[in-house]
Nucleic acid binder design. Sequence first.
DNA 1: ATGAAAGCGCTAACAA
DNA 2: TTGTTAGCGCTTTCAT
Lengths: 369, 369
Amino acid sequence: MTRGTGRGKTPAAPRSVDVAQVAGVSQKTVSRVLNGERYVSEDVRRRVLDAAEQLGYRLNSAARALASGRTRTIGVVALGTALYGPASLLIGVERAARDAGYALSVVNTLEGDPGGVGGAVQSLLERGVDGIVVSEPIDEGAVPLASEVPVLALGAPAGAGTPASAIAAGVDSVELARAATEHLLDLGHRTVHHLAGPQKWFAARDRQAGWRAALTAHDREQPAVVEGDWSAASGYEGGRRLAGRSDLTAVFAANDDMAVGLIRFLTEAGLRVPEDVSVVGFDDIPLAAYVLPPLTTVRQPFDDVAREGLRLLVHAIENPDAEPPAPQSQPVELVVRASTAPPASRSTPVRTRQASPNPDGEAHSPPAV
Amino acid sequence: MTRGTGRGKTPAAPRSVDVAQVAGVSQKTVSRVLNGERYVSEDVRRRVLDAAEQLGYRLNSAARALASGRTRTIGVVALGTALYGPASLLIGVERAARDAGYALSVVNTLEGDPGGVGGAVQSLLERGVDGIVVSEPIDEGAVPLASEVPVLALGAPAGAGTPASAIAAGVDSVELARAATEHLLDLGHRTVHHLAGPQKWFAARDRQAGWRAALTAHDREQPAVVEGDWSAASGYEGGRRLAGRSDLTAVFAANDDMAVGLIRFLTEAGLRVPEDVSVVGFDDIPLAAYVLPPLTTVRQPFDDVAREGLRLLVHAIENPDAEPPAPQSQPVELVVRASTAPPASRSTPVRTRQASPNPDGEAHSPPAV
DNA sequence: ATGAAAGCGCTAACAA
DNA sequence: TTGTTAGCGCTTTCAT
């Protein structure tokens, strides 16, 4: 195999030997400079860098990976959803990885795909990643997170379903959910209903647990939970199930999208938000402040979570033996807007309109503003 | 360097030679089987696969990449935003790449980072990617898309600013925007105002061009464009600038988020949507059907776009010389919901309320429902 | 249809 | 502080 030195179209990319030759040093020295190792004179360093620049040299990371056994790549197993939470986490992970000098290889698992996570992890290992991030894992029986590289479970509670070898990081969703629920209780509501996320998500369970904890702490009744799938559509449907309850004055929805769907249903059913029913969401999506009414919600510091998780992962990669550094907890931030109010303001219903049968409102019916 | 055969913790991963030995064939034959090459007897194939399974063999893709010069990896340069459009495109790209047998390496560029795209492309080339996708490129002077591998500009119009070597794919945003605008004209509005996206985005320019084309075709007046930054917040601000116009009965917003912010402002300003002002968005985000009023918008087939773009890219990677296959165009889909209506219905203003000074509505003001 | 040998471009160990 | 020598685990010629 001749390196296309002939007059082919591509003039063969320069290698580190070429740089070495131009700089008048050995190839190993070039390697030293490129890796920032110690014991290189400033003079030599300059010459090497100049030569590299002059030749337009670019490191071949496949060769480096083969020789070193490391790829400086972190694999991410994500869910392949454009939901605000997962998407934000992915962005945070990418940024943190890049800052730490790692590239990112992303594999999505279709939800419901059996063995999806396992297969994704396998393909990443084949790719030689140095570490793996499983973002927003869902609990589908045994998750095969055990592997020869460190694994970060982003959004899973430590211990729950994850093997001890895995690192866990995330916000304390339980605490956030509790804060959301208590906000409603503080406003004077007797109890708070819950529109939950799909229970195979750890995130959904945590939020439900936080809601339950708040009610328990205040010794309130715990209404039956209605479960959605995170979508606004399911929030709308959830509204249909909740609207009939006689003690419905406050709802904690497990995410903002469902809260929006819920509000739409309640509004169409003639219930005013927040006069008749208060609603709290979760996430603080960018639209939350601009829907009508502006949504009271709980902010998730996705960027901080991703950054913190990656710090732990990179530490585990680069110090295989050392104790993991102490995780830092993230601050709770409740954002109070206009979708919550004291229950007292239940006066006379203003409008009474039937909920439209088609949630899309494709028809030109007068809008509910 | 001894392959950790000593009694270290890790028992050294099996290599293809090991598989060959177990199967009783040469190492090259193992390679043949693994790559699905022809001329391997069914018997040998079986033996090799069994041996591989038995040993728990996993291909070392760094070695493969070094030897073959190909990584079977596609690099993606994305914008690092959780906006629905870019996020959806990324998901589509990942799926399509995986289906085609390619892994994905993702690099985000912070918007406003000078030379961001260039640097990202460099790092991907260093990583040895076989092709590059630049998602939702923005026009910041010369985009250095020229490179030794095929580049797909996803969301850029063919030709505009992209070198000839690049492949372009995307929806025909101009056509979609024209359709949105014509929907409003068809309803009887004399003209349509435009809340545009940031003009350095190709997507924003295309939508504006489509809007202008529709007005020109119908010989209508073209009101001054108000520019936002895609966010609901900027839509709200845009509303402040638009609300004073005397002929404001219809607005085409360049994306759904801005439309939502705009509607919020108009509502607070005492203008009803759609009775006083009709609003059309762009994207059809999942929430579009559930905000109040449900948003008339134009659907972008992100998944189709990504799939089609990747088809072209993979073709270019695997057939460097061949002509590119003909791109398929995507269907226009206008989703009519409740935020648009004929202008005639302008009757008597019902409420007249000042726009609140704080867009977040943190106060417990009665909601605008 | 299968095998032998060479080498991809780098880093790791050991010298000097 | 710098250089020498071996591989890393595959794919690629070229034989057979």
